[in-house]
Design a protein around this nucleic acid. Structure first.
Length: 505
RNA sequence: GGCCUCAUCGUCUAACGGUUAGGACGCCAGGUUUUCAUCCUGGCAAUAGGGGUUCGAUUCCCCUUGAGGCUACCA
């Protein structure tokens, strides 16, 4: 059997779209699952849409996501792109000679022809066709141009394009790996432009030539290409090339079911990364948007995905990109994560929230000017690990730890039906109890034990002690438990905050 | 308009002729807890409509409806 070779072929038009992320994931998983090659090819045949820096950006995100490829475009340490592989440049704008050679072959064999029609004429033609409720299609005016006529126009430097000469008889059919049999009448296929007047190939020509030359066994791409696949098949036939397998993946949708677009929310992978979603969660989420493992498992590492992925589990209905489940997945991954790793990821958000700043190998708390180390940050992050959904929330949720002065209403200190006086008395009780503590004994278990005793000794309810204490320490309606917080804060700050609570009431 | 495609809870999906139509997210209720979150238990919620085929249709066929994609010298 032929070696499986799959390529991801994005256009460098800015950012990586989350829909493309799913496509590239499926490409990658399909290749890896089958022990095949995975390749990155850049399709930059539209000069007008090219965005500076987007190739580098794309490569970096794929690298960050762990979607490794063996041939294609890479970026070195100095942020310069380079290409690796045995099949010539992997950037289409660097392959112009190749396309020229193949287009000449098509013309020679009468599978393509010069077209000198102006944009104005074509526009006019389409308008009339639509008025007559006909499908807008090239009318074939230049199809029958004689050799001399063509030469004359060429000599006059008349701009031209080269079109595919579609035989309008019969039909073209193919068997898509996702959609099954697709059959369409050739008379509905337009004489597609293959070479633009600027000498660049269109997608149709470039992708067919490259997929053939690069020995791509499975052409995988988004559903929007399904209607133009017959044109591509006609091209393969014109060249006398073996036709690869096709697999079209569904589109990701807006809530209104239209093609996922920027107008209706964020679509760049970077946006979601910046919002504090983990790459593992993002990958897992898009995996499930159109593929199912045929079991009830839902959490997959990249290695597990490779092992389990196959095309038979891929759906043919578009999925709405609804991030509710992504939030849940993200929380799952955060909870499973090693605290050190999680802390490293959280540091930039703490800095961004202006809670801390880097100071040599340590960190300075902005509000108090204290210096703390990474180990301390780990303890802070550990407090929130269970309740965090996105990394971006961390600043807001641990702000109370780093604040010099807590800002909250005194009523918050009062639990359920207690009186203000009760709250005050209980805080004083706690204060007295903890005052005698050794700094070293300021540990969550120890504090828990002592405060439980305090509750019993005074015949109180746990909430009557723990609620005011927790609020005094955090100033929040919802927060981690008072013992854990107290341990992280340390004796001095704990006593000070309790005192401040007492004064407030 | 033409061509192509699709159609199960709000969302992601399972059930490749026989199930009380299953799971997950979200939502609601209860439990655990000082609070929030986690965790546990339970609940609400779907086969677009109409015809066939069949002993029997979510499943196969046809029509209708709805939705989407394509219809560029963009990909």
């Amino acid at each position: 059997m032929k070696k499986i070779r799959v390529r991801f072929a994005p256009s460098p038009t800015g950012y990586l779209h989350v829909g493309s992320l799913r496509t590239v994931l499926y490409d990658y998983l399909f290749a890896k699952h089958n022990g095949g090659d995975f390749i990155l090819r850049i399709e930059d045949t539209d000069k007008a849409r090219y965005v500076e820096g987007s190739i580098e950006n794309l490569v970096k995100i794929l690298d960050f996501m762990g979607l490794e490829y063996s041939e294609g475009v890479f970026v070195d340490k100095d942020n310069k792109t380079f290409q690796k592989g045995d099949f010539g440049p992997y950037i289409q704008s660097e392959r112009l000679d190749i396309y020229k050679k193949y287009i000449d072959e098509l013309i020679k064999n009468d599978y393509a022809y010069y077209c000198f029609c102006s944009q104005e004429r074509l526009g006019e033609m389409r308008k009339n066709q639509q008025l007559q409720k006909l499908a807008p299609m090239y009318d074939g005016k230049c199809r029958g141009l004689g050799k001399d006529e063509i030469q004359k126009l060429l000599d006059e430097k008349t701009p031209y394009v080269i079109r595919l000469k579609v035989s309008k008889e019969g039909f073209t059919e193919f068997d898509d790996l996702i959609y099954g049999k697709i059959k369409i009448e050739n008379k509905t296929i337009d004489d597609q432009v293959l070479m633009k007047s600027d000498g660049f190939p269109t997608y149709h020509l470039a992708s067919v030539v490259d997929d053939h030359l690069m020995e791509i066994s499975h052409v995988t791409r988004a559903e929007e290409w399904l209607p133009s696949t017959p044109k591509h098949i006609l091209l393969y036939k014109a060249f006398g090339w073996e036709i690869p397998q096709f697999a079209h993946f569904t589109l990701l949708l807006n809530p209104d079911k239209s093609k996922l677009s920027k107008r209706q929310g964020d679509v760049a992978v970077e946006d979601y990364l910046n919002k504090g979603y983990l790459k593992e969660a993002l990958l897992n989420f898009v995996l499930l948007l159109g593929w199912n493992p045929k079991t009830e498992e839902e959490i997959f590492s990249l290695a597990e995905m490779i092992e389990r992925f196959d095309l038979s589990g891929v759906n043919k209905t578009g999925a709405i990109f609804n991030t509710e489940k992504l939030d849940w997945l993200n929380g799952m991954y955060i909870r499973k994560m090693d605290v050190s790793e999680l802390t490293k990821l959280c540091v930039p958000y703490l800095i961004e929230a202006n809670l801390i700043e880097e100071k040599d190998t340590r960190y300075k708390i902005q509000d108090t000017n204290e210096l703390i180390d990474f180990e301390y940050l780990k303890r802070v992050i550990a407090l929130e690990q269970e309740r965090m959904k996105k990394l971006s929330e961390i600043g807001e949720s641990v702000k109370f730890i780093f604040s010099d002065k807590l800002d909250y209403e005194k009523e918050l200190l009062i639990w359920k039906k207690m009186t203000a006086e009760d709250a005050k008395n209980n805080l004083q009780l706690i204060f007295d109890e903890l005052s005698s503590f050794e700094e070293n004994d300021f540990q969550s278990e120890k504090l828990q034990e002592v405060l439980n005793n305090l509750v019993e000794k005074n015949s109180l309810k746990r909430g009557e002690v723990l609620w005011p204490l927790r609020v005094a320490l955090t100033g929040l309606k919802g927060s981690p438990g008072p013992f854990e917080v107290a341990e992280v804060l340390g004796k001095e700050k704990v006593l000070r905050r309790i005192k401040e609570g007492i004064v407030k009431i």
